[in-house]
Design a protein around this nucleic acid. Structure first.
Lengths: 66, 66
DNA sequence: ACAAAATGTAAAGTTTATTTGTCATATTGG
DNA sequence: CCAATATGACAAATAAACTTTACATTTTGT
């Protein structure tokens, strides 16, 4: 699972903290997501989708192992 | 979290079993998803998206509580 | 009507997401 | 340069996803 949360976040000029608060998760969750440490739930993906005005598919992408 | 997996599955004329195998999860997982028992991971959502040829956003939708 | 296939459901167990707390390092602004 | 802010990272704990097994009910085809 790849994602471009970091890029989207840059576009909106938000800190990890800011984003975490807007989405309703912890800052560590955002950090770990950006670091590719794990895969979010679909609720979280949809919230990011809504916030960034992009389809989930434009933010997240499957990789070989998935 | 709402989803229309059941409808997509009907369009492709697949049983829950069929779908489960194509996606790589158990039949009960598909059943529980259709029943709205829980929210899938984004990997699972993307696999369904790919299989059905629809954006994740066209298959899944946020609800009040989410 | 009968048998087979499909679906609903539920408990117990394993794995993975997410939180909370904490500390170290980098980056930015005055 | 100094202080504040932002990021990276880790460990322990909790919550939620997902599996396996198993059985009951419904639907479908002949």
């Amino acid at each position: 699972m790849k994602n471009n949360i970091k890029v989207q976040r840059a576009i909106f000029n938000l800190t990890q903290q800011d984003l975490a608060e807007k989405i309703g998760v912890s800052r560590q969750t955002i950090n770990a997501l950006e670091a590719g440490k794990y895969v979010p739930s679909t609720v979280l993906a949809l919230k990011l989708s809504r916030l960034f005005g992009k389809n989930v598919n434009e933010i997240f992408d499957l990789e070989e192992g998935d």
